[in-house]
Write a protein that binds this DNA or RNA. Structure first.
Length: 456
RNA sequence: CUCCCGUUCGUCUAGCCCGGCCUAGGACACCAGGUUUUCAUCCUGGCGACAGGGGUUCGAAUCCCCUACGGGAGGCCA
């Protein structure tokens, strides 16, 4: 059996679109699954927008998602070059093959591919003109995902523009032949054009690869497929927002593929093992950031505390927290407290910043709520002694003491919580209060309570 | 206008190929309770779908046809 060779052939646009990422991912998964090769080929024929910077965005996104390529930019390979802009000689050679077979003609300065079959002219409603069509035999595509698809290509098409640049359909097929690609896994938006490609493969007497057209990703709301301008469409955005790459990758796998047994969070090794065409869906999927976030949160919770610290530290540092000046055991405790409750790394800083600074704003709504209930000064006066005298500041000790005070004043212990939380963090919500106070310790809690008391 | 692909809870989906085990399962979201009524975690429960119509069949989400809707393509864009 010949080795599976798949490719991802993006055009560097300056963005790494989530749909492209998934196409790359499915190709990569299939290569890994079959023990084949994953080729990265850069379709940079459009000179206008193809810059080095755009290429780096792409490569960086691939790396972030952990999609390594066996052949392509930076790693080379025996089927190179892997930039279409450097493959002109190959295109010329293949063009000559078609010319020799009399399958090419010139019109309006461009080179057209000649279909085989009887010609006739017809008024076309779409083109709003009389155009020449060909009575061609239908092309049959045995799609690995959709099954048998039949389509007739009935118009000659341009393969080399009048400015000399070869068009996508042509270079794509030539490269796939020249690079020995066995399986073409791409978006369903290419399905209609596949008849063009098959016609070309046949004209070259080349073996037609297995096609696998995967469903498209639709935008979160509104009609149409997701485009670069849609919210949440770009991979680099998730990287910037501190999403975990594993979670993003896992989620993208689930858009259009599933293992059939209700498993969702899976290590990549398991996905590689289980990924195959029968598990790929036919219907388009709507992107749902909420679900991505939920999966991301699950990944965060399952991190070892060490890994969590590795993710969290740089985020705090970039928000201005001077980690070097903070006791490492204190930091560990804070991390431990928030890892279990936090939903995203993106909001980590907002969730814990008051552990590291003594001045902060007091949430206005929270203040109102506190004022409305039992006099907060009274509540503070009742519990303050605990925080003055308690030795260990352990969670248990604080709880016992507060419980006693609560009973003495005929209150529930929770009556004190909102005001204490407000005083020590300025917020209405956060980690479990008692452990939080315990970790902060007397040197933070007491002054904050006192100054808050003065303020009231 | 033509052609191609698709259509199960709000969303991602299981089931469909090989009709009965489907009073259609899971996940996210949402709602309600609980975790000695702090809290973005956690637990329990609830809500909620076979696009519509015709067939075929003892029996259809599953097979066939039609319609509707959604998506894509029809470029000297990729």
């Amino acid at each position: 059996m010949t080795e599976v060779r798949v490719r991802f052939a993006p055009s560097p646009t300056g963005f790494f679109h989530i749909g492209s990422a998934r196409t790359a991912l499915f190709n990569w998964l299939y290569a890994k699954h079959t023990g084949g090769k994953f080729v990265l080929r850069i379709e940079d024929t459009d000179k206008e927008r193809n810059t080095e910077e755009a290429l780096q965005v792409l490569l960086e996104g691939m790396r972030w998602l952990g999609l390594d390529w066996d052949e392509g930019p930076e790693v080379g390979g025996k089927f190179g070059p892997y930039f279409q802009s450097e493959r002109q000689a190959i295109y010329d050679a293949y063009l000559k093959i078609l010319k020799d077979k009399d399958r090419v003609y010139e019109k309006d300065g461009a080179l057209w591919f000649r279909l085989e079959g009887e010609r006739y002219t017809e008024y076309d409603e779409f083109h709003k003109a009389e155009i020449e069509k060909v009575k061609n035999t239908p092309v049959v595509i045995e799609d690995a995902i959709r099954g048998r698809v039949e389509r007739t290509e009935e118009r000659d098409f341009v393969i080399v523009r009048s400015n000399g640049e070869p068009v996508f359909h042509f270079v794509n097929v030539v490269d796939d032949i020249a690079m020995g690609i066995t399986h073409v896994i791409r978006g369903e938006d290419h399905l209609s054009n596949t008849s063009k490609h098959v016609e070309l493969f046949k004209a070259f007497d080349a073996k037609v690869p297995v096609f696998a057209h995967i469903p498209l990703i639709l935008k979160q709301s509104g009609p149409g497929k997701m485009s670069k301008r849609d919210k949440g469409a770009l991979i680099e955005e998730y990287e910037q927002r501190s999403f975990m790459a594993d979670a993003v990758r896992n989620y993208i796998c689930l858009l259009g593929w599933n293992p059939k047994d209700d498993q969702e969070k899976m290590p990549i090794e398991m996905i590689i093992e289980r990924f195959d065409f029968p598990g790929v869906n036919k219907g388009n999927a709507r992107f749902d950031e909420t679900k991505l976030s939920a999966l991301n949160a699950e990944y965060i919770r399952d991190l070892t505390s060490e890994d969590f610290a590795n993710y969290a530290s740089p985020i705090l540092a970039s928000n201005g927290v001077d980690l070097a000046s903070i006791d490492s055991s204190y930091l560990d405790k804070v991390f431990g407290l928030c890892q279990a409750k936090i939903k995203s790394l993106e909001t980590l800083y907002e969730y814990v910043f008051y552990f590291f600074q003594d001045t902060y704003e007091f949430d206005a709504k929270g203040m109102q709520r506190i004022q409305k209930g039992v006099d907060p000064k009274l509540l503070l006066r009742e519990v303050m002694p605990i925080f003055e005298h308690t030795e260990e500041y352990s969670k248990e000790e604080l709880e016992t003491e507060m419980q006693a005070v609560a009973e003495a004043n005929e209150r529930k212990i929770f009556a004190y919580f909102p005001v204490i939380r407000m005083a020590t963090s300025g917020l209405t919500g956060g980690p479990d209060l008692l452990p939080m106070l315990s970790i902060m310790g007397r040197e933070r809690v007491l002054p904050r309570l006192q100054s808050f008391f003065e303020k009231l």
